[in-house]
C-alpha cells in the first residue's frame, strides 16, 4: 500500500510522486503500479499477482484464449454459444417413422445424452425442435404453434425426407406439406428415409458448429 501525505501540496514537492493537477483526488487505478520489492507469500501459479499476457490476444481466432495458467479470456457471446450448443434440450416431436429413429438415437446405442441433448415434453423447456416425419396440412398449424411457444434461442432440425421436402408424397400427396420449411424456419436438414441415427447425430453436430459460429463441414459459416 502506498503511503500518502495528507497534504497534497506536500506530495507535490516530492519528485518521486507524480501528481496530475493539484487538488484532484487520485484514483489508484490511474497511477502506475509500483513494483513490489519482495515476492509476497502467494501461490506460485499467480505470478506474484501480476497479469502478464503470454501472447497478444487475437480477436478473430475461434475459441477461448488461455493467457495464463488457470486464466481464460473469452468473449461473452462465445461462452454463451458454447454453453447453448452443448446442452440442447430437444422437444419430443415425433410425427412419423423418423420418430422411431429419433428414439433409437436417444437410446443406449447411439446416445444423444452424451451431447447434452435431453428430450423434454414441453416446448417451453426446449431449445431444439427436431421435426421428424411428414407434416400434413392438418398438423401444420400445430407445428407452427409449437415453434412459436419455444423460447428463443431456438433451432429447428428437419429430420428426414418428408420434413425436408415432402419425400415420396411430393407429387400426389394432396394433404402433405412439401417440407416443414414452408411453415417454420429450419436450420439443418437431415435427409434420409428414415435417416440413420448416425445421420441425425451428424446433423446435430452440424447444428452445434453453426451455433458456435465455426466453419461447418459443408463450408458455410454463420451464426444463428
Amino acid at each position: 500500500m502506498r503511503e500518502r501525505a495528507e497534504d497534497p501540496r506536500e506530495q507535490a514537492e516530492d519528485p518521486t510522486f507524480p501528481v496530475d493537477g493539484a487538488g484532484e483526488v487520485d484514483h489508484p487505478a490511474e497511477q502506475p503500479d509500483e513494483p513490489l520489492k519482495e515476492p509476497p507469500p502467494l501461490s506460485p501459479w499467480l505470478n506474484n499477482g501480476v497479469i502478464v499476457p503470454t501472447q497478444a490476444p487475437v480477436h478473430d481466432s475461434y475459441g477461448p484464449l488461455v493467457i495464463g495458467p488457470g486464466i481464460v479470456v473469452h468473449s461473452v457471446e462465445d461462452v454463451l454459444e458454447w454453453v447453448r450448443s452443448h446442452s440442447l434440450w430437444m422437444l419430443m416431436f415425433g410425427l412419423a417413422c423418423c420418430a422411431i429413429e429419433m428414439m433409437h438415437a436417444n437410446a443406449s446405442k447411439f446416445d444423444l445424452d452424451r451431447f447434452g441433448i435431453m428430450p423434454r415434453g414441453s416446448p417451453r423447456q426446449s431449445d431444439l425442435l427436431i421435426v421428424s416425419g411428414t407434416v400434413t396440412y392438418k398438423v401444420a398449424p400445430m407445428v407452427k404453434r409449437v415453434y412459436e411457444q419455444m423460447a428463443e434461442p431456438r433451432w429447428v432440425i428437419a429430420m428426414g425426407n418428408c420434413a425436408t421436402a415432402g419425400s415420396l408424397y411430393f407429387h400426389d400427396g394432396y394433404s402433405v406439406v412439401k417440407g416443414v420449411d414452408q411453415v417454420i424456419p429450419v436450420d439443418v436438414y437431415v435427409s434420409g428415409c428414415p435417416p440413420r441415427p448416425e445421420a441425425l447425430i451428424d446433423g446435430i453436430v452440424e447444428l452445434r458448429r453453426l451455433i458456435e459460429g465455426k466453419p461447418t463441414d459443408r463450408g458455410r459459416e454463420g451464426r444463428s
Binding site: L95, A96, C97, I100, G133, T134, T136, K138, V139, M142, L168, Y169, H171, D172, G173, Y174, S175, V176, C193
Partner: peptide, 29 residues
C-alpha cells in the same frame, strides 16, 4: 387425420411395383 398421407390416392397413380415403397412407410411403419 394428422398423419393422413393420401396413400390410396397415390396408389392409383403408381404401378404395382412402385406401391410397395408406400405401403411400408405410409402405413404401419
Amino acid at each position: 387425420g394428422y398423419m393422413h398421407r393420401s396413400l390410396e390416392k397415390i396408389a392409383e397413380n403408381r404401378t404395382y411395383h412402385q406401391v410397395v415403397a408406400f405401403t411400408d412407410r405410409t402405413v404401419d411403419y
